[in-house]
Design a protein around this nucleic acid. Sequence first.
DNA 1: CATTAATACTTTGAACATCAAGCTATATAT
DNA 2: ATATATAGCTTGATGTTCAAAGTATTAATG
Lengths: 161, 161
Amino acid sequence: MRVKMGGGYMDYATAKRINQLLTTVYGDIVRVEELALRTSQFKDISIKEVHAVDAISMYEHKTTSQVARELRITPGTLTTMVNHLVRKDYVQRIKSDDDRRFVRLGLTRRGRLVYRAHESFHRKMVESFAKDMDDEQLQIIEKALLNLEAFLEFASPTPDR
Amino acid sequence: MRVKMGGGYMDYATAKRINQLLTTVYGDIVRVEELALRTSQFKDISIKEVHAVDAISMYEHKTTSQVARELRITPGTLTTMVNHLVRKDYVQRIKSDDDRRFVRLGLTRRGRLVYRAHESFHRKMVESFAKDMDDEQLQIIEKALLNLEAFLEFASPTPDR
DNA sequence: CATTAATACTTTGAACATCAAGCTATATAT
DNA sequence: ATATATAGCTTGATGTTCAAAGTATTAATG
């Protein structure tokens, strides 16, 4: 059986497999990240907290609201997370001196270690993903993912960041 | 800057964009699904519960353990979810008569409605994803996703189902 | 056949992630 | 000076999850 797909037609089984892959891949990434953490020196940090560390990032001092928007959580939720991450010495709060309402976030030495480990995992992952593919093939993949984003954006417009 | 990628090389910016897409797409899917639920007649069911309904599925009566394995949650967690889903009339428990330890799970009329709606969303999503692509291009995409799965499998072997 | 093992599921208690709503501190507008 | 707006924080409630202990049923063993 073949399903209509815009210009072309798509094998029904292929559609099923791709759907399956798309919906399981993220969970698998998270599972591997979790396992990596449990067997590393960073046993006191959850994967969500690592993603917060990643969003806080190394090279600028974003505000709490900025980071919360990126992570798509409320500022209140991020405050709680940051409380924990400060207590566990991954993150530091830096008060802005120009406007003292803002809290800017930065990584500690320990936080930078986690950041780099996480970055490295994702680099390896994408390398693996794109293994044996040339530029043209990568463009096809990116196009497909952008189609998907466009569909989702159409289904539920997001507020600008 | 170009990064070594198996056979070829990959533009660094492309690697970053693809990584970004891969890691945000799942969250975006879930967000759209959540929104669809909130604006439908099914306001009393969460997206995780819908995924349980999806795993329970229409055409066979799987056991609790089987479904829990598919969802990668413990049987205890699924029991709790099923309690809620039974109370809200999406799922029914069916006692096996041959071996009375097993509980087989099935969907109610209401559960089947949700199942079909969810199925339809995913069908449209994959159609959109594969829009304007021919069989060859789809094969490239599937190959890439399978590479990724292989990498993740290597990083953390999963027990067979 | 009675007892022990194993299996399938359920319950319970604790941890974490999350949000909404109300709160504090600071800055801006009137 | 006062009111309004902004940024972040605290709190209480909800949902998801697991590990561990508990119950029911079946299979294995002496």
